[in-house]
């Protein structure tokens, strides 16, 4: 049963990634695209954890943690650039 449920959730996350790409493409403004990218980062973490569950290894949690940190830092850096035209003043 669990395999089926994992497949269903894989499909759900895949659909939400496609929706994020749609928002990333149509914009219309730069903050919209940043928001779409930030959501994509979070959905990718979900995808990696699901893949780890389906293959039965905990090795992927390190990768998930790293992606979470990189996603947060890059979102803040891009927003800071939009705000001031400079990342570190």
């Amino acid at each position: 049963m669990l395999e089926t449920v994992i497949l269903i959730v894989f499909a759900m996350i895949g659909v939400s990634l496609l929706l994020n790409i749609w928002r990333l493409l149509i914009g219309p403004s730069v903050p919209d695209r940043i928001l779409a990218l930030d959501t994509m980062y979070i959905n990718t973490i979900a995808l990696i954890i699901l893949y780890g569950m389906s293959s039965g290894t905990t090795l992927y949690f390190e990768a998930a943690l790293l992606i979470a940190m990189l996603g947060f830092v890059s979102t803040v850096a891009v927003c800071k650039y939009l705000l001031r035209g400079d990342i570190i003043e």
Binding site: M1, V5, I8, V9, M12, I13, V15, S16, T39, A46
Partner: peptide, 18 residues
């Protein structure tokens, strides 16, 4: 299974809202 389905639907709802 229930936790996975709840989590997946919340992530999907977030993207639908987007």
């Amino acid at each position: 299974s229930i936790l996975l389905l709840i989590g997946g639907s919340f992530v999907l709802v977030g993207s639908i809202g987007l």
